[in-house]
Computed example of a mutant assay.
Amino acid sequence: MTYVVIVTEALLYVCLGIVSGVMFLYIMPKVKTPSIVIRQSSLVLCTAGILIFSFAPVLNTLITFTADLGFWTAFKSVMLTFTVGQAWLFTAIIALLLMGLIHFNDLASDRFLATIGFILVILLIASYAKAGHAASLAPIKGFWFHYLHLLAVMLWGGTAVVAAFRSQSTQRWLPFLHWYTPFAVGAFILLLLAGLGTMFIDIADPLDGSIKQGLIQYKQGLASNYGQALLIKNILVIPLVIFAAFNSLFVKHQLRHGKSIDPLKWLRAEAVIIVVIFAVTAFMGQQKPPHEMASLIELNGPSPLFSALFPNPIAPGMTLTFDWTTVSVLFLILGLILISLTAITLLKKASKNMALLLSFAAAISWYFTVMTSIHS
């Protein structure tokens, strides 16, 4: 069931990103947005996907308690007293309202109704954040950190995905980049700061939650599935920033000077990285945060990926340390070379697929930089 929840969580991120991106573009003046075309039925289905896929964690909890309490008692308990159930009920109400608003109205041509739809999307993001790890550990601070992180990700990433795959032309691309570029920079700063706040709450000792404890637990948590996913997600941000800078700054410069470039091709490459990060985040969201690594390893065992790469026996309570080795330095240099080749490929406007391949290869190389530096 865990793997089903992970898949549905990834699909939930995609659906929420698409709906967020569409609504955000709908509330902007048409002269400043790409000409996007998306069927009302498709948008309704994406909203329905938010409703359906967000139920998977609730169903997982129901299955756990049904064996002891019976279905009806477990259902009432989970839906009315558990945060995950209460958050889903709120999500269901908002999603149904949004589905009705989309189905019965042409939001693409009515900015007022689109604004109402955008507000409903904001509430959906808030509902998702309320049911997250951070909010359960620190109800106020954890909720706001996670909410702001998600909001920035969905509006920046969702807009990029929608503009990349649903734009019919690049006719209004320069006016779009004029406001989207500073927005993307602001969103990135917000998601970085809020993401760090969320991370320190998720992985640090709940009774501490300090930056120092967070850094210690980040290192120790690499032996867990959560820690491995967090490391991969953090590394993937680097190629994402490279592509985002290219699409915002270089493409804007090329268009402003009348040079030939296909912005859709390169934005789609950026969107691919965003979707991969969505998938990694979905996996991470269904893993236990590494608060108490000794008990976590004792009960669930270490991460299979960590076990495959770590040379020493893994025992509860072991202390991980970082120490540069010849191999780790070589992987670091290789990653720098590969990301430099990625930038050159982008600037030369060569192959999109090659740029993506090089960027993922750089990310893999940096992952091995970290893993070959760990010792116990």
Results as ranks from 00 to 15, higher is better:
Leu97Asp: 10
Ser77Thr: 13
Leu98Val: 04
Lys76Arg: 12
Trp88Leu: 04
Ile63Cys: 00
Phe71Leu: 05
Phe104Pro: 00
Leu69Asp: 09
Gly100Thr: 09
Asp68Leu: 12
Lys76Asp: 15
Asp106Phe: 01
Phe75Leu: 12
Phe71Ser: 02
Ala92Asp: 09
Asn105Pro: 03
Asn105Phe: 11
Asn60Thr: 00
Trp72Leu: 15
Ala92Ser: 12
Trp72Cys: 12
Phe71Ile: 02
Trp88Met: 03
Trp88Asp: 02
Trp72Asn: 15
Leu89Trp: 10
Met99Leu: 08
Thr83His: 06
Asn105Gly: 08
Leu96Arg: 06
Gly70Tyr: 03
Phe90Gln: 14
Leu101Ile: 02
Ile102Trp: 05
Thr91Asp: 12
Leu97Arg: 05
Met79Gly: 01
Phe75His: 08
Ala87Gln: 03
Leu80Met: 12
Ile94Phe: 07
Ala74Lys: 01
Leu97Ile: 10
Ala74Asp: 04
Leu80Asp: 11
Thr66Gln: 12
Ala67Ile: 14
Ala87Ser: 05
Phe112Gln: 15
Ile102Pro: 01
Phe71Gln: 03
Leu69His: 05
Phe112Arg: 14
Gly70Ala: 05
Asp106Ser: 07
Gln86Arg: 11
Phe65Gly: 02
Thr64Val: 15
Ala74Trp: 02
Leu98Lys: 03
Val78Gly: 00
Thr91Glu: 14
Val78Trp: 01
Thr61Ala: 05
Leu101Thr: 03
Ile63Gly: 00
Ala92Val: 04
Leu69Trp: 06
Ser109Trp: 09
Phe90Gly: 10
Met99Trp: 08
Trp88Pro: 00
Ile94Arg: 03
Leu80Val: 04
Gly70Ile: 05
Phe104Lys: 07
Ala87Pro: 00
Thr81Gln: 13
Gly85Leu: 01
Ala92Leu: 08
Ala67Trp: 10
Leu97Glu: 11
Gln86Asn: 10
Leu107Val: 10
Leu101Lys: 02
Arg111Gln: 14
Phe82Tyr: 13
Phe112Ile: 15
Phe71Asn: 03
Asp110Met: 07
Asp106Ile: 07
Ile63Pro: 00
Gly85Ile: 01
Ile94Trp: 03
Phe90Ile: 15
Phe104Cys: 05
Leu107Cys: 11
Phe104Leu: 10
Ala74Ser: 11
Leu98Asp: 08
Thr73Asn: 14
Lys76Thr: 11
Phe90Asp: 13
